[in-house]
Design a protein around this nucleic acid. Structure first.
Length: 273
DNA sequence: AAACTTCTCAACCGCCTATAA
DNA sequence: TTTATAGGCGGTTGAGAAGTT
C-alpha cells in the first residue's frame, strides 16, 4: 500500500498555508515554483503555489467590484482580443486574468440572467450578443510586401535593431524575397519613439498626416487614449512625455501585430528617432 | 425556518510553449 | 534532435455564499 502521508494537498488553502507561502516568496522571491513547495514546507504542487500567489496573495492585487471604467476597458479589449484574459489583465492594474475571466463568465457568458437594467451601453450589447463575431487580433505571421521599406533598405540597420526579428529583416532585405516573420513588430527598447508617416511609393507625405485604422483597433485605441490618434507612439516609459501621450508597454505591443491594424494608403514608413 | 436554486470565484486540469540537458 | 521539466494560459469545476420560494 502506498504511503499517502506525502500526498499533494488539494482544495482551498488554509491561513497557515498562505502564511508559509508568503514567507517563502518574501525570502526567496517569485519564480522557481518547482522549489517552492519544498522551501515553504507545503504539500502543494508547484502550480497550486504559483496560482495561489498570483491570484490571491500577491500584494498588488486589487479587491472589490470592477469600476465602470474597468468594465468598459474589459469590454473593449475583449472585443479586440477575445478570451485572452492574461493580456486583458495586463491593462488593468491589480486585476488578474482569473478575476477578469470570472467576471466575464458571470456577467456576459451565455445564459446569464443578471438584470440588464443595471447594465449600460456596450455591456448590454455584450450581454445580448455573447457570441457576436468580433475581429480578434492574434499574433500571427506577418508578411512584408515586396516594396516594403523594410526590404528596400529604407530603414537603417540601427533603426531596426530594437525589433526582435531585426536579424531576419536585415538578412532578407537584400534578397527582396517575401519575408514572413512573427509579431512582435513594435520596437521594444525603452524610451524610443517611432514616428509614423504616410509613405506612398517614393513620395513621403507630410509629417503628421493622419492614417486610418480599422474598426476594432480604433475602438481600442480610443479607449486607451482619449485624444485623436496622433502620429507619434512611444514605447516604454518616458517621463518627459506629456500625460496625454499613449504609452504602450512592451508586452502589449508585442502581443499583436499593431501594424496589421493600420490601414494606410501606400506603405508605412517608420522613422526611429 | 427549511429547502431549493442561483451565483461567485478559488482552484484544478490539461494543453501549449520555451528552455535545458 | 529528442526528451524532460517548468512556466504559463484558458476552460471548467465545485464548494460555499447569497437569494428565492
Amino acid at each position: 500500500m502506498m504511503d499517502r502521508s506525502f500526498a499533494v494537498r488539494k482544495g482551498c488553502w488554509t491561513d497557515e498555508e498562505d502564511l508559509l507561502l508568503r514567507r517563502c516568496i518574501e525570502k526567496y522571491g517569485e519564480g522557481k515554483w518547482s522549489q517552492v513547495p519544498l522551501r515553504a514546507g507545503l504539500r502543494r504542487c508547484r502550480k497550486s503555489c504559483r496560482l495561489r500567489w498570483l491570484n490571491y496573495l500577491h500584494p498588488n492585487i486589487k479587491r472589490g467590484e470592477f469600476k465602470h471604467d474597468e468594465v468598459d476597458l474589459i469590454l473593449r479589449l475583449h472585443k479586440l482580443l477575445g478570451n485572452r484574459w492574461s493580456l486583458i489583465a495586463g491593462r488593468l492594474p491589480g486585476r488578474t486574468g482569473n478575476d477578469i475571466k470570472n467576471f466575464w463568465n458571470t456577467r456576459f457568458s451565455k445564459g446569464k440572467t443578471t438584470n440588464t437594467t443595471t447594465l449600460e451601453g456596450e455591456e448590454v450589447e455584450a450581454r445580448n450578443h455573447p457570441n457576436m463575431k468580433n475581429e480578434v487580433i492574434k499574433p500571427r505571421p506577418w508578411t512584408f510586401p515586396k516594396n516594403s521599406p523594410w526590404l528596400l533598405g529604407s530603414l537603417s540597420a540601427s533603426s531596426t535593431t530594437p525589433y526582435s526579428s531585426a536579424t531576419n529583416a536585415g538578412t532578407t532585405s537584400h534578397s527582396r524575397e517575401m519575408l514572413c516573420m512573427t509579431s512582435p513588430i513594435l520596437p521594444s527598447n525603452e524610451g524610443s519613439r517611432l514616428e509614423l508617416k504616410k509613405h506612398t511609393f517614393d513620395k513621403e507625405l507630410e509629417k503628421g498626416t493622419s492614417f486610418s485604422i480599422n474598426g476594432c483597433a480604433e475602438d481600442l485605441i480610443n479607449s486607451l487614449w482619449d485624444e485623436d490618434l496622433q502620429p507619434m507612439i512611444q514605447v516604454g516609459n518616458d517621463p518627459s512625455l506629456e500625460e496625454s501621450n499613449m504609452v504602450w508597454d512592451d508586452d502589449f505591443c508585442l502581443d499583436f501585430n499593431f501594424w496589421d491594424t493600420l490601414v494606410v494608403e501606400g506603405n508605412l514608413f517608420l522613422d526611429a528617432n
